[in-house]
Design a protein around this nucleic acid. Sequence first.
DNA 1: GTCGCATCTGCGGATTCCGCATATATCGCT
DNA 2: AGCGATATATGCGGAATCCGCAGATGCGAC
Lengths: 156, 156
Amino acid sequence: MADRTPRVQQLDDISRAIIEHLQADGRRSYADIGKAVGLSETAVRNRVQRLVDAGVMQIVAVTDPLQLGFARQAMVGIRTSGDSTRIAAEVSALPEVTYVVLTAGSFDVLAEVVCASDDELIDLLNKRVRAIDGVVATESFVYLRLVKQLYDWGTQ
Amino acid sequence: MADRTPRVQQLDDISRAIIEHLQADGRRSYADIGKAVGLSETAVRNRVQRLVDAGVMQIVAVTDPLQLGFARQAMVGIRTSGDSTRIAAEVSALPEVTYVVLTAGSFDVLAEVVCASDDELIDLLNKRVRAIDGVVATESFVYLRLVKQLYDWGTQ
DNA sequence: GTCGCATCTGCGGATTCCGCATATATCGCT
DNA sequence: AGCGATATATGCGGAATCCGCAGATGCGAC
């Protein structure tokens, strides 16, 4: 999960263009993309496969949790003492947690959580997050409304 | 963007299962999924189309910003006076902003931003976020490391 | 009952996917 | 310069997939 291949090498413009097409529609055909970027269908397919293998990109369905019946989402800011890396790893292991970053600022770790109910959120925070050794304090920001959600960063 | 169809009606188990398959691989064939969930290929295709049209799900490529050369990411907490909805909409209009939610707690709005450099981040915060009328204060949490990122919430 | 709507199935043709053989370009090494 | 090794490109043919359409099926409203 954290062992990304250290592919520091920059992508070329063609791969960028391919990514851009797939960000707009993950099911667009290789032939269409090839026509647009000036490559054969096979070449596009191989590039996509390489990009996915390298961890640069993945093609997935993303959903709106609210429409799936997950009523409670929140961002949880965590202040830690000691090794924040270990604490982040432990937080990541919790199933309700969808997103974890180490940060600089007044929080050391930010974690996004998705819960079915308020009770589940309370249980998660009190019994499973604050119980982690080294967690000094948490502060929760319950989501009221999702306003914007983009996946096409890095292009245009 | 904010005008989601208010589809409060619950999804059935079959649509859930279809979503689960596409969360694992956005390019899985309809026939395969149909075989797994006990539906014809056409029925799966129609359901996917409906789910996408309703805004429940979208199939897209998601990328690792770091590998695309976007070195600076941050979560920005915003305290507002007045209508936080309008302010969130104005923040959403900024191109570097990838994620915006209205929240309860000590911040009214949380915004995730992706920048190519520190200078761009500074410019974004000082000249374009704090300039929005009603933004009282901002606090930034610069990302040091992405630890976990999931897209398969709402299943299992 | 039956009308209307939503959803499912089956089917045929166009399109796409996918593996394989082969071509070309670049790089490192002697 | 010569020569492999590697990466990436193209073309091709067969299998699989996609996609629209026509016709069943199920269910609620009246």
